[in-house]
């Protein structure tokens, strides 16, 4: 069931087309990964979906309601995790959660219960009375997420929620996202980190130049690109004869030998892994063998011709 959709959405900033006839559907209960290089239009798409910016054309519908006319109704069941930390640093963690809860109409016991639940969920129960300025980056990120969860949204938008944090906090956040979805919340997750998207998202939409250029599950996306299979083999008894026999296999494009290690590149879906194994066994045996599959990074690079993030960003 479609919980939100954007059809033919256009958004211009002066001459610049931020959203170029964007089409996007979000299914109930899924984690949709929104991938794209800087300037692809991800943040504008998110803001348009949430009704935070007006659009110049197209239709946006959330929970079956048209965005714009029903802006306030829609916002009540949505949560947004901003890219930057946007909690109030002059209030404690608990006070932040209480305030954001009250903005969504929660009061009294319900508000207190939800605040306690979210504090527990983001692992900050023991720090409820501390101010975020005393927190580590990871704790601030978790509070930033908690503030979007306190009213139990049906649709949660997460805009790069793990930027600049340690691996432990990142894992905590990724596990939390899975748990949120298990409890019935639909999540739209944008990230520069493809391994995150690959790890948690049911479906992925790749954006470039203001439109979705490819969408589907990871397997569907990988299946769309022409790719070569790479097999790494460590032979027990490396020899020239073994090299020649592998080269003779139909579909093998190259064989690079380094000591006892062979790196063999074949056409996609050539099914050469078994043949390589058989030949290597005949030539003295196999110490180790592995096949590299194309990943999301390869898909992205093939579709957009760009790396998702600069090397500097990734460090």
């Amino acid at each position: 069931m479609v919980i939100a959709s954007m059809k033919n959405v256009v958004k211009r900033y002066g001459e610049m087309m931020a959203l170029d006839h964007l089409d996007l559907e979000i299914q109930q209960g899924e984690i949709l990964g929104l991938l794209g290089p800087n300037g692809a239009g991800k943040t504008t798409a998110i803001r348009a979906l949430c009704g935070l910016v007006g659009v110049d054309g197209g239709e946006i519908s959330v929970f079956g309601l048209a965005q714009g006319v029903n802006n306030v109704l829609i916002k009540k069941d949505m949560g947004i995790v901003t890219q930057e930390i946007t909690v109030f640093t002059d209030l404690s963690a608990g006070e932040n959660l209480r305030y954001f809860g009250s903005l969504y109409g929660l009061r009294g016991a319900e508000l207190s219960q939800n605040v306690a639940r979210v504090l527990e969920f983001v692992g900050l129960s023991e720090h409820a009375k501390k101010r975020p300025s005393k927190f580590s980056g990871g704790m601030q990120r978790r509070l930033n997420i908690g503030c979007a969860l306190v009213h139990r949204p049906k649709l949660l938008i997460m805009d790069e929620p793990t930027v600049g944090i340690d691996p432990q906090s990142r894992n905590h956040i990724l596990e939390s996202v899975k748990q949120i979805t298990a409890e019935g919340t639909t999540v739209v997750y944008t990230s520069h980190y493809m391994e995150e998207v690959q790890a948690i998202c049911n479906r992925i939409a790749i954006m470039d130049a203001g439109r979705v250029i490819a969408g589907g599950t990871l397997d569907e996306l990988v299946g769309r690109i022409q790719y070569e299979d790479t097999v790494r083999l460590t032979a027990v008894m490396p020899s020239d004869a073994l090299t020649e026999d592998i080269r003779a296999i139909s579909g093998v494009k190259s064989v690079v030998v380094s000591g006892s290690t062979y790196v063999i590149v074949s056409g996609a879906d050539s099914g050469n892994l078994n043949r390589i194994m058989e030949i290597a066994m005949r030539h003295g045996g196999v110490a180790n063998i592995s096949a590299d599959k194309p990943n999301l990074e390869d898909v992205f690079l093939t579709l957009t011709g760009k790396k998702l993030r600069d090397d500097k960003e990734g460090q």
């Binding site: 949430c50 935070l52 916002k75 009540k76 947004i80 901003t82 890219q83 946007t86 954001f100 109409g105």
Partner: peptide
Amino acid sequence: KSERRWRLLATPV
């Protein structure tokens, strides 16, 4: 006039 603006705008208030 900061990123917090988007968070406040996202609320029903």
